Computed example of a mutant assay.
Amino acid sequence: MAQEVRGVIAPGKNEPVRVETVVIPDPGPGEAVVRIQACGVCHTDLHYKQGGINDDFPFLLGHEAAGIVETVGEGVSDVAPGDFVILNWRAVCGQCRACKRGRPWYCFDTHNAQQKMTLAGTGQELSPALGIGAFAEKTLVAAGQCTKVDPAVAPAVAGLLGCGVMAGIGAAINTGGVTRGDSVAVIGCGGVGDAAIAGAQLAGARRIIAVDIDDAKLETAARMGATHTVNSTLMDPVTAIQELTDGFGADVVIEAVGRPETYQQAFYARDLAGTVVLVGVPTPEMKLELPLLDVFGRGGALKSSWYGDCLPSRDFPMLIDLHLQGRLDLESFVTETIALDEVEKAFERMHRGDVLRSVVVF
């Protein structure tokens, strides 16, 4: 039987979000209904609200979530009612050319629930953010979007792995291949950049250099594991990174801003044969210009990192276990917990840069 729950809707471009009644259908084949316990307020949700993703309004926002599986549809065997899960937005297909080559983190045919959640009263179909829509008491997803983890972890912490924190940690470990003794620079110290710093520390980096224009963010980065900080309004970040790495540049530079000028800084701040990882999300109109001879002459690798090149079934349980062992401080990413009707205010605080993460707790 379909259920009615409260959810946060973005009705139109740049319009204030509002709490509406949402109809959740029974799960069909390969689907699951999840009772949401916590969901982080991510920049991607703000992009949806601003029309920066697409114009398929109205959106059911929220995607950085953890909760309890309530019911599953036909053919679901990996999760069962009562399981504590983190939701992900890349349920791998297992059949595409990437999956068949043993690289499911590159899956080219990820999927979401087939049925649509709707607005009560009008029956209007909703577009769930990243195929999840978790600013709601319950949501409908593909069962493959549910990753079972140790229920000992706090939901407000666990849900953050569903997007931003995983993107940053994965950019360092999975994409950048940071390992023991490496020097790492992270340009842009928001939530994703700080997660990249935490990932670099977890991997055993010898030197971790945080770059930002905000001293308060640099202080947070230092708490997250940065060994050095650089305010790029006061000094040239490329020169600063080179001076902190014996004149060579960093082994891995992670660009967590998504702008041409900061990407160029990352490119020239790496060591010869070093690696640049772009995890910041650019806008469609942005262009990058680099001398092709420099691209050729410096060698190394220029990579982009999408969702931290993660495989949720592999990475989520591992990172939760590391957190429970005290080796990965996820609590530091939670600035505040809020109620469902405070999401609009959380967007305002995000825009001002006041928070790492606001988390809706049900």
Rank of each mutant, 00 (worst) to 15 (best):
Q201D: 07
T122A: 03
E336G: 01
G258R: 00
A185D: 07
P312G: 10
L234H: 13
T245K: 06
R259L: 15
G131W: 07
E70Q: 14
M1E: 13
T337D: 08
A154N: 13
G82D: 06
N54E: 08
V276Q: 02
H323W: 08
P58C: 08
S332Q: 15
R223E: 14
T220S: 11
F267V: 13
C42E: 03
E344L: 06
A195C: 09
L130T: 14
Q201K: 15
D246N: 14
D83W: 09
C107W: 05
V252C: 06
C99G: 07
G30F: 02
F267S: 05
R35P: 00
N112I: 02
P25V: 09
V5K: 12
Y307M: 11
I338Q: 04
E15A: 14
A198Q: 11
A226R: 07
P284Y: 06
A154P: 02
A143L: 03
A240D: 10
L278S: 15
L330G: 07
G159V: 07
G176K: 08
P81F: 05
L356K: 11
M166E: 12
I86V: 15
R90G: 09
P155T: 11
Q242W: 00
A172E: 01
V165C: 04
K148Y: 05
Q325F: 02
A301V: 09
A98S: 13
A203H: 02
F333Q: 11
S183W: 00
V360E: 08
G247H: 02
D214G: 01
E289G: 08
F135N: 06
I213N: 01
F84T: 06
I187P: 05
R223A: 12
A65C: 09
D329Y: 00
D354S: 09
T71W: 01
H43Y: 12
A152P: 00
R6K: 15
A2Q: 13
C42A: 04
P260F: 01
G247V: 03
K217C: 02
I24R: 00
I53V: 15
G121V: 03
C107V: 08
L356E: 04
M350A: 13
C107R: 04
K345D: 15
N88I: 09
A129S: 15
P260T: 02
R357S: 10
K100S: 10
A256K: 01
F57C: 10
T239C: 01
I209H: 04
T71R: 15
G170N: 12
R207P: 00
Q50V: 05
D194I: 14
I338D: 01
A226N: 09
G144C: 10
